[in-house]
Amino acid sequence: MYNIDDIKLANNIFYYLVSNKEINEEDSPEYFRDYCESQEIMNLVKSQGEAFNVKVEKYGTTIYLIPNEDNNFLGFSKNELKKELCKSNATDKDYYLSQFVILTLLVEFYSSQGRDSKSRDSLRGGEFLNIISDRLKEAVEREDLEKIQADSGIAYENIYEKW
């Protein structure tokens, strides 16, 4: 049984997450502490997340609201994202290339581990273009490319061709 105060607090925490996508220990110490120190509050917030087709996860000093892959309410559908990221006459190859570029960018900036996962503060445009070219070339030149593509569902050859 949950008491009404716990339910209200969990609702406030979940609302804050929906509004801000995250709760950081520095920015919202009360909500962060309430979530982390009370198993009841944590369970209620996670239960609300399940109802909204999202995950609520704590990593380090931040609690995140992470939409599930098929969540079109708090996330994007493939077509909506394609429309935002690519030109109006874009193909799926354009879309997948944009996803590869975004993931490469994230890996370049946040590939370290520990308290602060950020690994660098800046990256020159030309260097980034070279990194993308090198990674795509590496992928298509692998001997086990067909197996990798089948296992991951990523058509590296098509992405490289579009690049």
Rank of each mutant, 00 (worst) to 15 (best):
Y2T: 15
Y2Q: 05
Y2M: 08
N3K: 07
K8T: 12
L9C: 03
L9S: 03
L9E: 03
A10P: 04
N12C: 08
I13R: 01
E22N: 11
I23P: 00
E30M: 10
E30V: 11
Y31H: 06
C36I: 08
M42T: 13
M42P: 02
K46G: 00
F52L: 05
F52K: 03
N53Y: 08
V54F: 03
V56T: 01
T61F: 15
Y64H: 13
P67V: 03
N68S: 05
D70F: 06
S77I: 13
S77A: 08
K78F: 10
K82H: 05
E84T: 08
L85A: 04
C86Y: 04
N89V: 04
D94V: 02
D94P: 00
L97Y: 05
Q99Y: 06
V101R: 03
L105F: 15
L106P: 00
Q113W: 07
R115W: 06
D116T: 09
S119A: 10
S119R: 03
R120Q: 07
R124E: 14
E127W: 10
N130H: 14
D134C: 08
D134E: 07
E138V: 15
E143Q: 13
L145C: 15
A150E: 10
A150H: 15
S152Q: 09
I154Y: 07
I159P: 01
I159R: 05
